[in-house]
Design a protein around this nucleic acid. Structure first.
Lengths: 228, 228
DNA sequence: ACCGCTCAAACTGTCGACAGTCGTCAATCG
DNA sequence: CGATTGACGACTGTCGACAGTTTGAGCGGT
């Protein structure tokens, strides 16, 4: 979790309730693959490990369930979400749906300052990409797409994307290695910006279709490569 | 919530945990406007009223929060979600995004049995519309759109729509009266089916844009009419 | 009359405990 | 030897209680 610059300062200070802390811990542990996919999580053991009671653990687990990181079976408890190839395709298809919509809303009506902010974000992404810190690169990449969608001005759309982003992180952990060159990453994102700047609707659509397609293929390839 | 005929018998038995029961009660109470928008819900009072302890109430409230029916403020509790005009527009814009995507996926590749199922659903909708039971009409209408999206074959897309549907119910409660003629409802839905059957992509898009636009306008009009 | 302060009531966050349920594994029966 | 049953252990669902915080009413000062 990139510790977003806290839309409201209070939100950051208020982080001190156990439910959120446990949720953050679990999120990190899951996308950091410290729990195996499909693994059962025991409430009591988690509570013991974290030094808290079961109530916050249960509530945090419900939160993660709504975000698609855990699944619950009645009377059996919570399990780490295990994605099959079909679910993976669905996730990227929904991502395409959301980003297409944002691109379309933005095409031709993209405020210059939004474009500038997106350009800055690409730079941060390149920097992260060069740093060798893989998880930072992933977060900066997601931050770019988050910004893209936020620029469309629909907060509900943004919330849906943020929910989905948790599952995307889960997908991305499946990738063994990308080691894409920083130049290539910069270029693929600049293609999106250029399309936006041109104001050409179909071109925007084509650009985002290609971009998401590449991301999806790299995950699918990884998961199929790891199959045998 | 129409208590679906329990796809699997086991699912019917399992409904007996308090969290789900409390969640159902709260959902009904909220979309039935038995709580005012923005009203604060006291955990202890709800627990007393329902004859359960606070734990299931808290977990149910978190569930409803993830569905957008409640919002929580740390240390202050849960409040019934109050929608302003902007959020309302966002919700319908996301709905458009999702249904467009489904229509597009279906255009040209819609299995005949899916089309048949959609036709049957329109008939049920007409029947409900003629019955004068408003809440039943709403559920059948949502069921149609749910089926439309389900036909696209993306379960993640469907889940997103179902989450959104809860908020749509919240929107629809704002409408004082629709009393649309059953014939008109039938026709507006048949337009969608005809577009699908034609396999013409742009026509599909136009049809769904129009359909959602009408729904949005009727809600927006209602909320603005009720303003003064 | 208006504003700030104090304090009690109510509420949320968290905890530990109990009861019922599920999975496991050994003993039993065909 | 395979299938069934029963008991044991671990775990989830639920509960009541305590501590710290928020709220709102009452009070005193301006």
């Amino acid at each position: 979790m990139p510790a977003p610059p806290a839309a409201t300062p209070a939100a950051f200070i208020q982080q001190r309730n156990l439910v959120d802390q446990v949720a953050d811990y679990l999120t990190q542990a899951i996308i950091g693959q410290r729990f195996a996919p499909g693994e059962r999580l025991s409430e009591v053991q988690l509570a013991r490990d974290l030094g808290v009671s079961r109530a916050p653990v249960r509530e945090a687990a419900r939160l993660l369930e709504s975000r698609g990181l855990l699944v619950s079976q009645p009377r059996r408890g919570f399990f780490v979400r295990a994605l099959d190839a079909g679910e993976l395709a669905d996730i990227f298809d929904l991502r395409l749906c959301l980003e297409r919509h944002a691109m379309e809303r933005l095409a031709g009506a993209c405020p210059p300052e939004a474009l500038a902010a997106l350009r800055r974000q690409v730079e941060m992404l390149c920097e992260a990409s060069g740093s060798g810190d893989e998880s930072r690169r992933i977060e900066e990449d997601l931050a770019f797409h988050r910004l893209l969608i936020a620029s469309a001005g629909n907060r509900r759309l943004l919330r849906t994307f943020e929910d989905l982003a948790h599952e995307l992180r889960l997908c991305i952990t499946l990738i063994t290695k990308t080691h894409e060159a920083p130049d290539s990453i910069a270029e693929s994102h600049h293609l999106l910006l250029d399309a936006l700047a041109s104001g050409d609707g179909p071109r925007c659509r084509e650009a985002i279709d290609y971009h998401i397609g590449v991301a999806r293929d790299s995950v699918v390839q990884s998961i199929e490569g790891a199959r045998e």
